[in-house]
Design a protein around this nucleic acid. Sequence first.
DNA 1: GCCAACGTTGGC
DNA 2: GCCAACGTTGGC
Length: 778
Amino acid sequence: MTDELNELSPESEILKPEDAVPAYLNEMHPIGEDVDSDVEDDDMSCKVTVELLPDWLKPMEEEEVGVDELMSAGRINRRKTKEKPPKVKRGRGRPPKIRHGLSRSEFKKGLHADRTMKKKRVGSLMSRKRLSRKATSVPDPSLKAEVLPRTRQRVVRSSTSTPQSTKQVPDSPAGGTSAEFNSPPRLTRVSPPSIDTSRRSFVHSPSVKVGNVTQQIISTEPGKDVSELPLQLWLCPSLEPISPTQTQEILSQQTVGSPNFPEASLNGTMTVKESLTMTVKESLPLLSECEGCGCPFSAQKHGDTLCYRCRIKREKKRSPPNILCRKQRPQRYGKTENDIVPDGGDDDDEEYWRLKKRNRRMCQRCDACRRDTDCGKCDFCMDKPKFGGSNKKRQKCRLRQCKFQSKLQFRNGMKGVPTSSLSPIKKMIKSNKLLKIKKRGRPRKKKFKNDPWEEEEEDYEVSDNDEDDQELRSSEMNGSQVRKHGKWSYTFKEDEDDAAYVEDVVDANIEEDSVILDNERSVMASNEMYNTTSGLSSQGLYYNVSGMPLSSHLIGSAPICNSGAVAMGEVIGSVPMADEMSQNGFLQIEMVKVGSSPSHYREEQQNTQQMHIADPQQEHTPVITQIFSLAGPETESDRDPGLIELFTSLGQSVLPAHWVCVIAKGPVLQLLQCSKLSTMADTVVQIEKGFFYQVTVQNQPLLLMHSLYSRHPTCLEKVEHVVSLLLDLEALGVCQGYQNFQMCSPWEPKMCVRAALCDLLIPKDDEHCGKCSQPVEG
DNA sequence: GCCAACGTTGGC
DNA sequence: GCCAACGTTGGC
């Protein structure tokens, strides 16, 4: 093959190396310095002067292999930059004269471009993409002139390239970095003689492959319109982005084997002249009109009716999507619209990620995501200007926070409960946001005053005026209401299981804006809620009442039959039965004392319902926040199975209104009247081991001589006994004692005292017992 | 580490 | 330009 080429180009010897090799290449690598053995071995070598072309021809072949290997290893870049560039220098010099309208600089750029394309072949598709992006975004003015010729080359390429390659082709104006510029792997192939002096170049190029030769021959066809087509062709092979699977052979076939060059395809060397002639004679129309856009374009072969761009578009439509290399985007659960991965370019990617980022907190599937209306009650809603808020929080309505992807859920450490099953509100609950009806946010610095109650009240006042607090109040639904009443403060240190059930309840409450008490698994925290609980049979309640010395640890359950008027908001919550709780030992309840001193009792009766709501300053009852923990003190020996059983039974039964059953350390079972509207507000029935019971009124034990004891069995073993006793108590009132005129001066408030043996509990209609009606003087 | 506050962005 | 709300910051 090369021999014949040599024959065709007898003048090749005339060519001086200086002409054949670009000046800069010569400087880097003097001609003749490195003569490849392959060239010498070749028959052709004898015809080639040492000074002549073999120098830049030889390395080419050698380098081509090396480059391919490097390409396959993906290390070509490193090689180019770090290693000596002898082969590069040696390179494939191109006669400066042979440029076909290209200036020297343009010629160099052509080399450069060639190299770039080579690099692209090596690189991954992603890197290609980046390159193209780079090139498009920051066009190199110096390279701009080359865009056109290369585009034409692409026309040649596109017909044979795979979808992959075609996809890369469009915008790859050969990003020209210096590193890329240093590697001339393919430059040899585009041998200058092939263009200028027609056959000379490849005559001496044993490494020239059929396809290349053919192209070169075509391009060097004298007298023809070489200004355009040759340029396309001789740049084509090196510029063509070859897919990793596409071999040079294929390339050659594609180029040579085109209908226009049938003979060339058969024998690249033998039919060179003929093919050239054919090309000239028949040849393809150099310029055709694109059917797509109407623009003139260079037809590559017969039947080409579309310009490069139009053809690319068409191929793009046809190309199977799985061939295209696309970024793998993480699949987010629940994405619907956004699941569609754009096929487009980087712009699509950016758009995609932009939207993705925007919707990062939404799964689009859960109820919350589908909800399109704000509740107007949560803190976030209340923060919104449209709800009169100050727009400080700027968050989405709580009910619209995605159950799966909302950021809130991850903030809160709801351990044990799968976050995927938690709504933000639930999460909030788990993180004590709701159950912990304390003031949210950063706690103030503890200022210990003389009177801790003042601290509490002052704090409450402030919170009342605090806009945020109001938001919170209304926001956290029931919890907020609790908070609204301020005095109630409780905290759950709950176990996972409990967290789950509490959430459910609260969630239900929030959703329906009404209190739904799920047996013992509910959270009640306000008068409002309490009012809505009418008819509920039983809830487990944890309750602490002032003046109960034995109730340092209280936990219990008692039925509530709220048939009466308004409750006072004492009911703060219901939790599983005490036995469960005690067994788990995890519940920690922070509660408040609700007891009031007897002297205030009467006056407060009128406003009892609002004592926790309306005006905190009117609240004279000291409120103590305490933490009762079952985790520590109670032991197995403290439990009395009988009491527990009774306790459980009571919890499942209907007790007289506002009577609450609690179990305390001792163990003792206590029945408390929660409502201060009741005359039994300060009465406690305490059942101890063996079901013996004791009644206390305002911390004073009801004397055993009281008739009450005689009307009921000594042991309250059954629910009926307890209920009977409570009903009996409800018919009684508390003795008011007698006024002690002697103890105080006329201008001082008159104090009532009781007789030492006061009955304490008397019929409701009576004011005082017999003992107090006849006080003993002195 | 939590969370209130707020800068910022995207949609309209 | 306004609104919604995401993401970050800094105090605690």
